[in-house]
Design a binder for these strands. Structure first.
Lengths: 242, 242
DNA sequence: CGCCTATTTGATCTGATTCAAACAATGTGG
DNA sequence: CCACATTGTTTGAATCAGATCAAATAGGCG
């Protein structure tokens, strides 16, 4: 559980301000957004491929992921989501979900009606651009993962994922002394990297063996950021934080 | 060459209308958009990783692709673009390019100032949503490619790419009797699928051997769409055409 | 304690890569 | 119009990164 005292809307604001600036009135409008908060247990689907949602879902606490299955039953995870994210913001403009959103851990979610989001953006056109930008960063991360899955070795790929998650968690204030919560199973990491669980395990042992990181009980500790970045070929430009 | 008599703006309109409806005044505003048309030879970079463009680029004629290199010099192609696309629309909200855009064939490009696009969207908020939606479909295609590269066999992956390109070209009127222009090298296809050129070649021979398609001299002929779709596990939902 | 889930280890197999070379098609300059 | 350079396709053989299969171990929890 990645608990915190912030309200749902505050989490969203913090996340958005990790990549853009907001005006006071925009912050106010976000705080006034009606939301229905709900707790969801781990490993539950929140939105499914084929659904036609009329609301989006703000992740307040916990970890979530988006994924899709092959006809042959193999899963690819497209993204891991952390507090402050709206993982299914795209449903605002894409009628039918082409993939699913599920919880990784127990989560607190806040559902926001499409209508309310549309009204918000109508009143605050700059916010529309902020959200658009957010979905573009989402896409930038897809590209980076694609590059990794298609062209990088297992070791580089895994190191890269860990660098990315670390930076993103840091940006929303979930890092403390090179430690971040990372409650993923090796199986989930494999589904994200296009690797088998077994191979994730062995690759992880390499990274541990080189004293780049520790990762136990859902907690990731970065021991040597510079060398981790190096073996990951990690350049954070694509995260478009500023 | 995928020539045609349509003006740059008409190409754009046709493309947008393959996935949404436009109002007459929106069509008019698009036609009034100032553009600087330019011819570019094959294999040239149009926008490079690290650039901070002040204009976007409408592909009027020819094929283009977006890509990025690994530190070890391996290329991953993220997308192929066909006439009517604005491949770098994302530069409107992402200051720094995190990947490159290049021509595959000789191309006709039409450059549009960011300022003009912003003004257009300010005057026609619905168009902003249309363009946003377009970048979301871009992202949906990334996800599908990721699923393929991460979890599908070479054969399925290649068949899937060909299905996708075929449908997209059809949507912008470039298909005739199951034939579409496809002026890609096997090397480029490999860089898109995360495969070596050699393996693309052998896989292609399988598809040809099963009489699913022909592909010569930059022309793709689909011989058996249904069986191609089947071996590709192709479900076009993710293209969000309607 | 016993159950369930996640991690780890070992052995074997395979889809795809790599390297190397032949072949085909197209274009270019003399 | 031919020699030859260039780029793309095809073929063969050897190799390897990572998958698969199977089983042991470890941790948490009711």
């Amino acid at each position: 559980m990645t608990s915190s005292a912030l309200s749902p809307a505050h989490k969203l604001i913090q996340k958005l301000e990790s990549t853009t600036d907001l005006l006071p009135e925009e912050r106010g409008a976000l705080l006034a957004l009606p939301m229905r908060v709900q707790e969801v247990r781990a490993d539950q689907d929140v939105v499914r491929e084929g659904d036609r949602p009329s609301h989006c879902c703000l992740l307040v606490d916990g970890f979530a992921c988006r994924f899709k299955f092959t006809d042959k039953g193999k899963r690819q995870i497209f993204a891991f989501h952390t507090p402050g994210d709206i993982p299914d913001l795209l449903s605002l403009h894409l009628r039918t979900m082409d993939h699913s959103l599920g919880t990784v851990t127990d989560c607190t979610l806040a559902f926001i009606q499409h209508d309310h989001l549309r009204e918000l953006m109508y009143q605050h056109p700059r916010l529309a651009n902020v959200f658009w930008r957010d979905t573009l960063i989402d896409g930038a991360i897809f590209r980076e993962w694609m590059l990794g899955i298609g062209r990088r070795s297992a070791k580089t790929r895994l190191a890269h994922l860990l660098c990315e998650v670390f930076m993103r968690l840091k940006a929303v204030g979930l890092e403390r002394a090179n430690v971040v919560p990372l409650p993923l199973t090796q199986n989930e990491v494999g589904d994200a990297l296009g690797l088998s669980t077994v191979h994730v395990n062995r690759t992880l042992q390499e990274l541990r063996g080189e004293h780049l990181l520790e990762w136990d009980a859902g907690v990731l500790t970065v021991l040597d950021w510079d060398r981790l970045v190096e073996t990951a070929e990690f350049d954070p430009t694509y995260l478009h934080q500023h």
